[in-house]
Design a protein around this nucleic acid. Structure first.
Lengths: 135, 135
DNA sequence: CCGCATCCCTGCTGATACTG
DNA sequence: CAGTATCAGCAGGGATGCGG
């Protein structure tokens, strides 16, 4: 309980913190959360967690992703320093993507979230069913 | 490393799992991730983590949220069983919102994510600056 | 093989105004 | 106080076609 309040305080403080917020117009925590909620970012990170992969390999493995979104998402992840890009000068050329140390470090806290999700899904679906029935 | 691969496997399996996915068209893990990335959901959860609050109290405390989004987000959280709603039959009427046990349990894994974010923000911003400079 | 550019459409969001 | 209803703007993301 007390710890929960501490976490909340840290979070809310950071959120309200005007530092780069007032200037850039975006909150740094919001930034990270957006990535988490992004349709493809975390899925790609999880696929890359198993090891380096090439562009078309990802394109085949990640279900239903378009070429455009794969490119775009990989660029964003690279820009944030979560993924590194390696071009091999063969022909035809091949490009390999892999998680950086920072990218790998994200897997740990993200994993806790996935665990929570998997454990809580039954409760959530039950709550939804109950809520919808009342209407 | 090995553990990372396990987490990835669990996640990807769950993602691809056709159970309610093929029928409802939505993946249960995706559901949870969407809430995390939602503009207001987690912010409200964090504010409620400090204790129960009334509608207008939240409206005042949560920065820049519109009445509409506050109502809508609280409804969604309630439907998912993360937040409970209590109406007091006074006049003027007052409505109190509080985290359920499920809602409180989310704070723990979510807290790890916030911690990671706060620790990693310097690295991320450095990576971005470096990436942008190259262009 | 890898990536960029364009078009287009859907849905989320905010602003505004109105009820019990 | 605690909502509901309606309207308009914008960004995310898919489809398609082209280039190195």
């Amino acid at each position: 309980m007390q710890q929960d309040q501490d976490i909340a305080a840290v979070f809310v403080d950071r959120w309200n913190q005007a530092a780069s917020f007032e200037q850039t117009g975006t909150c740094p925590v919001r930034d990270v959360l957006d990535k988490i909620g992004d349709k493809w970012s975390m899925l790609i990170v999880m696929y890359l967690a198993a090891g380096p992969k090439r562009f078309n390999q990802l394109h085949r493995e990640v279900p239903d992703i378009s070429q455009k979104m794969l490119t775009q998402t990989l660029r964003d992840l690279q820009r944030d320093g979560l993924v590194s890009r390696h071009v091999f000068d063969t022909k035809p050329p091949s490009v390999e993507y892999r998680l950086t140390g920072l990218g790998q470090s994200l897997i740990v806290p993200f994993g806790y979230l996935i665990d929570w999700a998997n454990q809580s899904i039954p409760s959530i679906e039950a709550a939804r069913a109950s809520y919808d029935k009342a209407a």
